[in-house]
Design a protein around this nucleic acid. Structure first.
Length: 274
DNA sequence: CATCAGGCGAGAC
DNA sequence: GTCTCGCCTGAT
């Protein structure tokens, strides 16, 4: 068991912020369970005290980076223009959200699934994919879970079988992308070494990945914090609150983090469209 | 019934 | 390069 304190960490908001789809709140209201990097884990929070149900060795090796614990979010947020009322409100509301460092392959598939889709159904689809094509495992506490399917496992799935996971027209995208990765058209290891522009260009070669999805993958898997995914929420906020354009120049290298706060804010307090 | 959900591909121009 | 259209499916 690992216990730490941090003023800028909210497991509940992270869970609901829509960047991870295999993290779920448990019934006690202060614990989430998550499956990532082939492991099952539970995180419990009481105020600023956070408990990770794992060894210190595992925490240091995996979860410290996963939860971006080395980054000082207070320092980042201190750079916000105090006259930007909307952004100040969004950042205040989302206090505790962090940009996770998630698995690249899992994010590629997850954000293909996410297009033109809602969070609840995205979770359902991914859960079905894991149960059908992922390896079954048992956690230390006896919990049974399924690992995220490998590229090979998904490449072997027929498009009609993917339809059975409620993926709809995204089934073909997943089939083709999995096969592209398996063939080596796009190399996951090389992607990890690339800068933002190169990685994005490479991701755009995959079927089902356009501008928005590529940016989500860059932000949530490659930690390119200048990637600023423009979805329907963000486009609406840009159109209504930033008619002169979003001031990217003020937030060089971390506009992507702000994007996540804006997204979460509009998800919970939707603005009227322009 | 229509519209929308964290868009994208294909084809027309 | 920009524009339009069709697309699985469940919720409202």
């Amino acid at each position: 068991m690992v216990t730490i304190t941090n003023e800028n960490f909210s497991i509940s908001k992270i869970c609901k912020s829509g960047q991870c789809f295999r993290m779920n709140e448990m019934e006690d209201g202060r614990t989430v369970s998550l499956i990532a990097y082939g492991r099952y884990m539970e995180v419990t929070q009481d105020g600023n005290t956070i408990c990770f149900d794992c060894s210190w060795e595992e925490y240091d090796r995996i979860w410290k980076k996963y939860f971006d614990m080395e980054t000082d979010y207070a320092e980042i947020m201190s750079g916000i223009d105090t006259e930007d009322d909307y952004l100040v409100s969004a950042v205040e509301y989302g206090k505790g959200i962090r940009i996770l460092n998630q698995d690249l392959w899992e994010m590629i598939i997850s954000f293909i699934v996410s297009q033109q889709n809602n969070i609840k159904r995205i979770r359902k689809c991914i859960s079905l994919l894991c149960e059908k094509y992922g390896e079954k495992k048992v956690a230390a506490n006896g919990m049974e879970y399924y690992d995220f399917p490998t590229p090979k496992a998904l490449a072997g799935a027929a498009v009609e079988d993917l339809y059975a996971c409620n993926l709809g027209y995204r089934s073909r995208y997943i089939h083709e992308t999995a096969n592209s990765i398996l063939r080596g058209d796009v190399d996951l290891e090389l992607l990890q070494q690339m800068d933002y522009d190169a990685a994005k260009t490479e991701l755009l070669k995959l079927c089902g990945i356009g501008e928005k999805v590529a940016d989500c993958i860059c932000l949530f898997a490659l930690h390119k914090t200048d990637a600023f995914p423009k979805d329907t929420h963000i486009n609406k906020v840009l159109a209504t609150q930033y008619q002169e354009g979003f001031p990217f120049e003020k937030y060089v290298n971390y506009s992507g983090i702000l994007q996540q706060y804006i997204f979460y804010y509009d998800l919970n307090f939707p603005l009227r469209p322009a």
